[in-house]
Simulated assay, not measured.
Amino acid sequence: MAKKARVRDYDQFIVRLPPGMRDRIKDKAERAGMSMNEAIVWCLEREFPAPVTLEDRLEELATMVSMLTDSKDTYSGVVHLIAEIEETLDAIGTKGGIPADTKFSDMVRERLDYWREIELDSWRDRNESPFDDANWTSVEEPPEGDPFPNLPDDEMKKD
């Protein structure tokens, strides 16, 4: 874990404020229960956020995975996690995005695509029946009670 920086180690920057702005900052900071410095830093953090490292993002994703184990709605959690992974992959290597090796993001993307294929096959296994007439196109409806409606009578007699 990284050491917490001491206040005296922080960078200092002198800012010239237009007339009246110091008082406005002071009033808003007091109402928010903050010092003027905290209020200014808070505003600057919103406009100039620290860059996200790949390690930070992977830690966030790992936290999401651990939360999924406790979730009652695992499927929607997985869908959300996949969207977050894709967003992370899109941010890798882009200007202002997450600095990382693009080979890494390509590898993760390939594994994600592979997972999607497996999940689709699994979904089909769970939800599609090979015996469901809606999955087959046929010219005529099978007669009721006939288990082999498309066999010619000669082939039926052979058995």
Rank of each mutant, 00 (worst) to 15 (best):
M1D: 15
M1F: 14
K3C: 12
K3W: 14
K4W: 14
K4V: 15
A5K: 15
R6Y: 08
R8Q: 12
Y10W: 15
D11L: 05
D11P: 11
Q12E: 02
Q12R: 09
F13M: 04
I14G: 02
I14A: 04
R16V: 14
R16C: 08
R16D: 07
R16T: 07
L17E: 05
P18Q: 06
P19D: 04
P19E: 03
P19N: 02
G20E: 04
G20A: 01
G20F: 04
M21E: 01
M21C: 03
R22V: 08
R24Q: 02
R24I: 07
K26C: 08
K28Y: 10
R31P: 00
A32M: 15
M36I: 10
N37V: 02
N37M: 03
N37T: 03
N37F: 00
N37W: 01
E38I: 02
E38H: 11
E38T: 05
E38K: 08
A39H: 07
A39T: 08
C43F: 04
R46H: 12
E47M: 13
E47V: 08
A50C: 12
A50V: 14
A50M: 13
A50G: 13
P51R: 15
V52H: 07
T53I: 06
D56E: 12
D56K: 10
R57I: 01
R57A: 07
R57E: 02
L58K: 06
L58Q: 06
E59D: 11
E59I: 09
E60P: 10
E60V: 06
E60S: 11
L61K: 06
A62T: 11
T63R: 10
M64T: 01
M64L: 04
M64G: 03
S66D: 13
L68K: 02
L68F: 02
L68D: 01
T69R: 14
T69A: 15
K72H: 08
K72A: 11
K72V: 13
D73I: 07
T74P: 05
T74Y: 02
Y75F: 00
S76E: 06
G77D: 01
G77Y: 01
V78Q: 01
V79T: 04
I82L: 07
E84Y: 00
E86S: 05
E86D: 07
E86R: 04
E87H: 04
T88H: 10
T88S: 12
T88D: 07
D90T: 02
G93E: 11
K95N: 09
G96L: 13
G97Y: 03
G97L: 05
P99M: 13
P99Y: 10
A100P: 02
D101P: 06
D101A: 10
T102M: 08
T102N: 10
K103S: 07
S105K: 11
S105I: 08
M107F: 14
M107H: 14
M107V: 14
V108G: 04
V108Y: 09
R109S: 07
E110M: 07
R116S: 10
R116A: 12
I118V: 15
L120F: 05
L120W: 06
R124N: 01
N127G: 02
P130R: 05
D132F: 01
D133K: 09
D133T: 09
D133W: 07
N135F: 00
N135M: 00
W136A: 06
T137H: 01
S138D: 10
E140A: 10
E140G: 11
G145C: 07
P147D: 11
F148G: 12
P152K: 14
D154E: 13
E155T: 14
K158Y: 05
K158W: 09
D159C: 08
D159K: 10
